[in-house]
Amino acid sequence: MKLVITDLKDFSISIKGEHRIIKPQGTIHPCFGCFGCWVKTPGQCVMHDGYENTGMYMSKCTELILISQCCYGGVSPFVKTVQDRAISYIHPDFVIRKGEMHHKRRYQNVIALSAYFYGENITEQEKKTARNLIEANADNYDGRVKNIYFYKTAKELEDILL
C-alpha cells in the first residue's frame, strides 16, 4: 500500500495500485509533546481529530510519499503536523543504528520514503537541506529513501504517476 501525505487539498495526482491519502480535511491539531501515543494509548495519538491513526497507516505501507510545499528545506506545516503526530509508528525504546541513537521498530514493514517538494523559489541550500532531512527521516523510520524531486508548482505534479 502507498501512503501519501500531502498539503494539497485538491489532490489530483494519479496513483498506481492500492493507496491511502492523508490531506487537509477539517482542523488538525499539532502535537503537544505528551508522549501519550507511547505511554497511554501505544500506537495511536491521544488527540481524536481524524489524524490519530497515521502511525498505524504507516505500518501497512510499503511506500510513504510526502507531497509538500518546500518550507526552508523542510515540509509544510500540514505535512509536518501529520509527521509529528505519527511518532507512534516507532517504539519509544532506543537502539543504536549507524553509530547513532534512534528509536526501535514497532512494526516490521520497511518503508521506502519519497518526497515531492514544490515551490517557486526553492534555493540550492534548501534542496540540500531537504535531501538530508528526508535521509534522516528514513533513518529514523529504519527505512530507505526512494525518490526526492523538486517542482516549481504543484500544478506540474499533475503530470506524474505515483
Binding site: V39, P42, G43, D93, F94, M101
Partner: peptide, 30 residues
C-alpha cells in the same frame, strides 16, 4: 542514558495503568 530513558517509559506506562509489554503494542486500524 538509554537505560534511564527506558526505565522512564516503563514507569510512565505503569502510571497510566498499562504494562511494560504494552509499550510494543501494534493496534489494528479501526
Amino acid at each position: 542514558y538509554r537505560i534511564a530513558a527506558q526505565i522512564g517509559w516503563r514507569q510512565m506506562i505503569k502510571a497510566n495503568g498499562g504494562k511494560t509489554k504494552d509499550l510494543g503494542k501494534r493496534p489494528e486500524e479501526p
